[in-house]
Design a protein around this nucleic acid. Structure first.
Lengths: 360, 360
DNA sequence: GTGAAAGCGCTAACAA
DNA sequence: TTGTTAGCGCTTTCAC
């Protein structure tokens, strides 16, 4: 056919300038001495073909190192096997495991991930969305540095599924996946109670974080459940820093009267600061005071003296689950609401319990 | 033409099942009552068109929310405006700023980034490369958790440019971009020397890291340059941990004789461990001993008491530069070798200098 | 069992 | 100044 001949000439000409331009299905067809239709059928294992032909074509294609052009395939089938990952703010400590889990699970389904950093800039984010839509991604995942609700991602009437992970949308119909902060806090308190601790204080971050409020609620619920009261001035919201952990300990243990016998800290940095301050005051951890952190930021938890027992949000699992849910959505399933995935506790040396469970 | 009519029917039918399937250029053409050629010219601002037509078509397209299909464009022009980012091992603390810089700069050039995690698994990496090649990326960036050379990325005779950042290939023709570790070490020693320190020890990580060897060389070079000797047993390779920092201090200061008056540490964790141990031994930092770290891992450097003066590898800049170089390579420039980008020093409180420079 | 050709959505060369 | 059409590389009917 005329078209085919022209194509060949074009390719021949281009080959002079660009060595090793990707092979096309035509090249394979010519080499195997069959039509392109046959090649397609052979490679995609469909249609009716004599087994020998099929094998021969496949062998030729492999021999040539033929790599079908996904763009062409996608154009045809209307599915690209790509998704976009947009971070509201930036990539950070929490994004990483989420990304890893997400990417791992998606790539198992042969789906590629576009990485887009919104950088806290709505305009930048909008440009990213635009470019994702032009690239016809099959879905979009939104994540962030914190799990609090954000304004919805504007997709301009496109029908791409959007999933929020470690992030929530303010729109009602959206689907979000976040850690169960309250449950994590309960886990921490349960652990301390089982160890016989009675006066459990809670030193945590700023209350504008939803996570802080949820963990506080979980902490209180667990205390109540065991008939324990919250120690007087035992709930200390503050900031997410070691310095605050030290300061909080200073406050809690300054009065003559004993102070708490356990600290549940809102993150591992606070816990570390607390541990340092207690040591410097000669208050034995875990003998006199137990500490539980939050985040299982391993590098911090393991460097703390003693190493920190802490709550793990299982962010990698969150990422994996996000991938699975997104695939469901791409397949047409409609899901909405906020799903909270369980945290777990990682026992190290800061509580005095027998060291067990996931040690690292 | 018959084809066009068929197309329209197909789209009509599909519209019943899939609401809001992306518009095509045909839809715009119909709405604006012009041919698709005209639409293309109007939107791409080329060809010769009456200004009024151009404006009208653009207005119609915008009104409809038309978003041209990048797949089709790419298929046509043989360039996809996408690149792949492959990590050898995993995403980590060092990858983040690199990714950010890279993504930022690339997205300014309207290039999207596929995120691929090699996860230390050659097979997985190969699958990723394969999928990138099938997606016809314009280039590939390889990065890793450490800057040491790795085996070359196998692209099976494709001619996509490959760039290594915070990573190097063992193949001779490759191009890699890494921080100037030796230079960074010199910066650290210079700083200490200027402050009048004479006995500068170096506590660092495992020598199998190229970075460790380079920093050691820079340290020695700077000492020699100032006519200073390396203190006896003053070079202590070990591991990258706080515990090692503490232990090293214990060794250095156990003997009756004074010990060093400055510590240059191979990373901020070691520096932090050292600072803690010195404080606990009642040795004043920075009054009696100065400390310089490496990495400018802000969360650690700032939490250390006193806050750490440290070397910054400027990884975000490295990422940005990688993006620019990759674009050059895509444009046909051939570059090879290893380029080392300068580090800088971030002065905080651990050396006793007037606090100045980039404070955070 | 295999080949021919229409078409995925777009661009660009050529006609009109 | 605008419209028509041949591709880009692939899949999938439909003929043969």
């Amino acid at each position: 056919m005329a078209g085919g001949k022209d194509t060949d000439r074009t390719r021949g000409a281009r080959a002079l300038r660009k060595p090793r331009a990707p092979l096309t299905i035509h090249d394979v067809a010519r080499a195997a001495n069959v039509s392109i239709g046959t090649v397609s059928k052979a490679l995609n294992n469909n249609g009716t073909l004599k087994q020998t032909t099929r094998d021969r074509v496949i062998a030729v294609a492999k021999g040539l190192g033929f790599r079908p052009n996904d763009l062409a395939q996608s154009l045809h089938r209307g599915q690209t096997f790509t998704v976009g990952l947009i971070t509201s703010d930036s990539f950070g400590r929490f994004s990483i495991p989420i990304m890893e889990g997400l990417e791992e699970e998606l790539s198992d389904s042969r789906i590629s991930v576009f990485m887009c950093n919104g950088a806290d800039d709505p305009e930048r984010e909008a440009r990213h969305v635009d470019s994702l839509l032009k690239k016809r991604v099959d879905g979009i995942v939104v994540t962030g540095r914190r799990a609090d609700p954000r304004r919805r991602l504007e997709v301009h009437g496109s029908n791409v599924p959007v999933l929020y992970v470690y992030s929530q949308s303010d729109e009602p119909g959206a689907f979000g996946l976040v850690p169960d902060d309250a449950g994590g806090a309960e886990l921490a308190v349960e652990h301390l109670v089982k160890l016989g601790r009675k006066r459990i204080a809670h030193v945590t971050g700023p209350e504008r974080f939803e996570a802080v409020r949820l963990r506080r609620d979980g902490y209180r619920k667990a205390l109540a459940h065991h008939g324990l009261g919250e120690p007087r001035n035992g709930y200390l919201p503050g900031v997410w820093s070691e310095a605050w952990g030290r300061e909080a300990v200073a406050r809690l243990f300054s009065s003559a009267r004993g102070g708490p016998d356990a600290l549940f800290c809102g993150n591992d940095q606070i816990a570390r600061g607390a541990a340092d301050e207690l040591r410097e005051r000669g208050i034995a951890v875990p003998d006199r005071v137990s500490i539980v952190g939050f985040d299982n930021w391993e590098i911090v938890a393991e460097a703390t003296r003693p190493s920190l027992t802490t709550i793990d949000m299982n962010l990698k699992d969150l990422g994996r689950e996000a991938a699975r849910r997104l695939i469901d959505m791409i397949d047409g399933k409609r899901i909405r609401g906020v799903k909270r995935l369980p945290c777990s506790i990682v026992v190290r040396d800061s509580c005095g319990a027998t060291r067990s469970g996931r040690g690292s």
